[in-house]
Design a binder for these strands. Structure first.
Lengths: 205, 205
DNA sequence: ACGGTAACCTACTCGGGGTAAGTTACTATG
DNA sequence: CATAGTAACTTACCCCGAGTAGGTTACCGT
């Protein structure tokens, strides 16, 4: 059996740069998600790609660069998903609801890698921090735009502060869901909309 | 001048373990805050302590261990400060207000190191993540206790979710303040209480 | 004075990020 | 088909920082 199928090219296929980059990002996202940033070695990513380490450096420059590229891809996707979700809504309540459902669903789908981004934002260098922060800022702009439209009576600083509150609360709630699997996407979204809408006063004795 | 003051012991004083540990924690908190976890080398901390690296390992076991010890100290202090602040309050509004002021003030006072903790929770190992998470859980218990007392009509899951929302929002707001120095502690606390109390509905057109 | 111990140091190993310089497979053209 | 050019790819290395083995020195109690 062994001599019968010599398998002349043992499989190592050469790939175009674009394809290889995509594959590297897929693998990196997976390994970062599994092991965390620190625990991940470039050698391991290279090996899982079936390629040697200098290729990673050729294409991404550094370990940080690789992480930043992963973040960038997720960032684009997140914006796309949330924007599309909110586009169909009419009332402010509906906008918030749909945005939240889209956000939590996105994190569910990417849980492996995204949980790490939320938990280890700056495991890497300043550049990586900035990349994650840029993602938040992108979402901030979405939210503050909505707030400015529907709640113009709030001051400028208040709108900015509320935006940050919503961002921080969403992230924390998303993380909380990772260790409370019984909380569905809709549950989480409902808690967020309830809180954002009326606050705590309805519950006070 | 040089020969006149031979300075026989060039200054290297021996310290008791307890004193040295305290000094190491002070220095570590400072350096971690300046350079971030990644950027900090054990050699630098050792040098600033006027001591050699193995001493750090003797007392804290590892770089993670040192970070965990720093976190532990801050954690105790944070609990103390917030509990004392809330103790004097009567109404729920006042509890929230005082708790927030204490929290933001604490972060102001420890901005160097605490900003890193919020930004780089898991720069290190799982142990360090857990230590930071334990700090949050400590604050969670404080908050959910208050919620359970004053808002018993909310369900169990809702109370847990609101607690996480408040934690996440506070952290994010604290971080936001670091790059918006014009926002005072009281401003931030007011935005938080406004939002938590009535949510967004008062501002809707 | 002098032993015991706790604080301390020198001098290393090892692993992983990052790189220099060379090699091999695909591709376009004569 | 040959062959030159280039882009994908490799081996073999450097270097820095985490972590350690084993020895040295200052203090303290008797």
């Amino acid at each position: 059996m062994s001599a019968a199928t010599p398998q002349p090219p043992p499989r190592r296929r050469r790939m175009s740069r674009a394809d290889r980059e995509r594959q590297m990002l897929d693998v990196a996202e997976e390994v970062f998600g599994e092991r965390g940033y620190q625990g991940t070695s470039m050698d391991e990513i290279a090996e899982r790609c079936g390629v040697s380490k200098p290729m990673l450096y050729e294409y991404f420059g550094s370990k940080d660069g690789l992480l930043v590229a992963c973040v960038g891809r997720s960032k684009a996707e997140l914006l796309d998903v949330t924007q599309k979700a909110m586009a169909g809504a009419a009332t402010p309540e509906d906008i918030l609801w749909r945005g939240m459902v889209a956000y939590f669903s996105f994190i569910d789908a990417h849980s492996k890698s995204f949980a790490m981004l939320l938990r280890e934002p700056a495991a890497a260098s300043q550049e990586a921090v900035d990349a994650v922060e840029a993602t938040r800022r992108q979402q901030s702009e979405l939210i503050s735009g909505v707030l400015a439209t529907f709640a113009p009576s709030a001051g400028e600083q208040a709108i900015a502060a509320f935006t940050e509150i919503i961002i921080g609360a969403s992230e924390r709630l998303a993380q909380w869901r990772t260790w409370h699997p019984e909380v569905s996407v809709e549950d989480a979204a409902r808690h967020m909309t309830d809180f954002c809408w009326k606050g705590l006063s309805p519950y006070l004795a």
